[in-house]
Amino acid sequence: MNAGPVVEDVLRVLLRHRRAPRGEDAPGPGAFDAQRAQIGAAVAAGRPIRLVLPAFPCKSPNPAKRSLQKSGSGCWGCEERWEHRSMARPRVTTKTKIFRIEIVLVDVEPTVRRVVEVPGEASLAVLHEVVQDAMGWTNSHLHEFEIDGVRYGLPDPDWDTGTLDEAKTKLFRVLAAGDDAGYVYDFGDNWHHVLVVDAVTIPEPGVRYPRCVEGQGACPPEDVGGVFGYSEFVDALADPDHAEHAERVEWWGSDRFDPHHFDLVATDRALERLAGASATARS
């Protein structure tokens, strides 16, 4: 496989978790040159890449996170594990079942939802990537699925948490038409999603899967502070007289954010990297 994009993805996560406090120089593009070759070799060999990311000074608007940082307890949303594992892309044939799944971000206004179509042979690890790319997240935090009371995610080799390996679980084996699943992203901001299988169909000739076919609403910024923090962020950014307007503008880097924005073409294009080989021909 081409290791280049994966190497850059891993380095992006490292850089994200090495951000410097304001007033100090942030790590530059060459900050991890020494690791680049090692990461590339691991990817080329198919070995998993597991990172334990240290806490950094918390910039989140979430008051709970800031108070934990000030108290010396650290920011529980910033110290976490992250792992890249090579995943097989599902091959689409005429016998493949296509799962049409609606993804809704719970308790967020305005509504943030996506409708995606995913091959049933995809693993839950691939479905996780689909959710990340379709929603607009950056895959920089932990996540977990819950289906029929069973949790799926990245098992911790050091602790038996009862979490089953998402990479070893196929979508069609745990979900069917009409079923739903829970998906939590970022155990600090605690973004809850509900995934509902609207239908199970056959693939359309010449169509690339997975794909996004519908959606609305902008994805909240990472580390904004969850549902409450996002609502405050939107209000503060839109109102120059808001007590936290200047602080939020500095944090975001702009006074512009449209919570209603959704670009279907760009969202669907983001899923291209997850497409497997296709044996279906256009009629």
Rank of each mutant, 00 (worst) to 15 (best):
R85G: 03
V115N: 01
L164V: 10
E144N: 02
I103P: 02
G153S: 02
D165Y: 08
G178F: 06
H84W: 15
V118L: 01
V115G: 09
T201A: 14
E102V: 12
D179S: 15
G188R: 11
L127D: 02
G120V: 08
L154V: 07
T161V: 11
V200K: 11
L127C: 10
Y152E: 07
P119R: 02
V115P: 00
P90R: 01
F187A: 01
T169K: 05
R91M: 05
V197M: 08
R91I: 05
V104K: 03
L175C: 12
W82V: 03
D107W: 10
V126P: 02
D107E: 06
V115A: 08
I98Y: 15
W159D: 01
V196P: 08
L171H: 10
T169I: 15
F145N: 05
R113S: 15
D133A: 13
R89P: 07
R113Q: 14
H84E: 13
P155G: 03
V112L: 09
V118A: 10
L171S: 04
L164M: 04
V196Q: 10
V108W: 12
V197H: 09
E109A: 04
F187Q: 00
L142E: 01
W159E: 14
K168C: 03
D156V: 14
H193R: 04
A176N: 06
E129K: 09
V130F: 11
F145M: 07
I101M: 04
